[in-house]
Structure formats: structure tokens, C-alpha cells
Design a protein around this nucleic acid. Structure first.
Lengths: 120, 120
DNA sequence: GCCCTGTATCGACATCCGTCAATATAGATC
DNA sequence: GATCTATATTGACGGATGTCGATACAGGGC
């Protein structure tokens, strides 16, 4: 049979270069979920917004956040939306003002995510 | 003096909307370092490559990685470079083949990063 | 030396992302 | 309701990013 020649040739050695190596255990959509999560953290401004919110006991209003960055209000609002979408922060209305605070419950899942990716 | 009118007007209330809120404790470059770190994880393929490498006791050669993804070899090589640049993986030559493995030491810093960002 | 195979790099392309200015929306006060 | 202020949304623009095909580089076998 020609079946043998249908295998991966793998150079002149004709053999494998290393043990079979199982495919990724993470399904594509699970990996995408984690990636979307990390994507929300893949910007210095968002990291610092999170850090700023984490330093305050109570929620902080948007205008106060804007004051701490050399960026326009729409840009900050944009970043806050991204952080909201992945639930890293939660917003709360107080009259005209919007107050934001970190969602610790969500961020504490981090070590678990690392463990799952590295399956340790 | 007109000094009072130089303060933030803050609506008709004339006062602050919330307690002062310290700026972010993370310096801009430190935040950028963390962001660059997360950026390397902000892609499903890279997450799954990491996961694949983490499942194997010993290092895995590039051709084996390529076999597990519906992407071209140059693309996988590109992702591996990004993971190498942030030291999430390390490469090792064995003859013609390149073998990659996860750098656990580096990835284990994760919980610390989370703690530093959330200053808990 | 030459060729073959595995990996990295380059150049191009489409898409995504961060930023801004302008505008829309929501709530409070009058 | 009219107006004012805080926040969100929109549209546009430049730069980054993921992907590919083509090519360059490296090491082993002849």
C-alpha cells in the first residue's frame, strides 16, 4: 500500500520531530473569551483607569477620571465602555453624574484563568 | 479676587461631585508594560498556542504547532515571536527544528500583576 | 559543494483600535 | 418647557494588528 507515503514526510528522517503533542485543550470560543478579556486590559490608559478606580473606596465620577488623564472626555467614555462590556467596572447613576467602580469579583477570576490556560 | 471662578465650575452646584480621588498610582510606563504584556494575550490563537505548549511536558516543535491550527506557518511563527518577545515562551534549537515551551516563571507573575493594578 | 526541509522575515492587504471634534442624550434647575 | 451640565454616541482619521504569499536563512545529508 501507499499509505505510508501519505503520512507526513517530515524530512529525510521520515519520522516525527517530537512526541505527538495533543491539540489545545481550550476550545476556540473559550480562547476567544479569554482573549476578549485580555484585550480589555491591553491599553495603558485602561490599566490606569482601573488602577485609579481601585484606589478609591467608593465610586468615582467620570469628570474626576477625565481630570487625571490628558485625553478628551469622549475617549475616556470610550475606554469606560470597554471596561464595562467585560464587567471589569460597573457604573451607577447619581443624578446627572455617572459613578464607576471596579468589579472586584470579576477581576479576581484572573488567577483561575491563568491556571486554566496553563492547565496547572 | 477672581480666583474662585478659576476653579472647576462643576455645574450649578459649584461643588465637587465626589471626593478628590487620587490619580492612578501606576506610572504611565509601568501601565504600558502591563498593557504590552496583556496585548500578547489578546488573541485567541496565542492563547491556544500557550495552552497547547502548557499541555506538553517537553518542548514542541513549530511544525507540530502549525498542524493544530488552520493558519499558515508564517502566521504561527509571527505569533510565536510575539510570545517570545514578552518571554511567555522560550525557544530552543534542536538541529533543524525549533522547539518551544512555556516559560512558567514569567506567567506565574500574573496574580502579582493583578494585585498591583488593583492594589489589594 | 549542492539540495532539501524547517523556520523566520518581508511586503502587502484588510481590519481593528485609539483618538479627536461634533453632536446627541439624560437629568437637574429654573 | 427652556436651559444648563455631565455623559454617551457618531464619524473620521492615522496607526497598529492578523493574515497571507513569496522569499530568505539555517542546518543536515548527499
Amino acid at each position: 500500500m501507499a499509505t505510508a507515503t501519505l503520512e507526513r514526510p517530515k524530512a529525510a528522517t521520515g519520522g516525527r520531530c517530537c512526541p505527538p503533542a495533543a491539540g489545545p485543550a481550550l476550545a476556540e470560543d473559550e480562547a476567544a473569551a479569554y482573549a476578549g478579556w485580555f484585550k480589555a486590559l491591553a491599553d495603558p490608559t485602561r490599566i490606569r483607569i482601573l488602577n485609579l478606580l481601585a484606589q478609591s473606596e467608593d465610586a468615582v465620577c467620570v469628570c474626576d477620571i477625565v481630570d487625571h488623564f490628558p485625553l478628551g472626555q469622549p475617549t475616556i467614555s470610550h475606554h469606560l465602555k470597554i471596561l464595562r462590556d467585560v464587567r471589569f467596572v460597573v457604573a451607577e447613576r447619581r443624578g446627572t453624574y455617572m459613578h464607576y467602580r471596579v468589579n472586584r469579583a470579576c477581576l479576581e477570576e484572573f488567577p483561575d484563568a491563568a491556571r486554566r490556560i496553563l492547565n496547572v
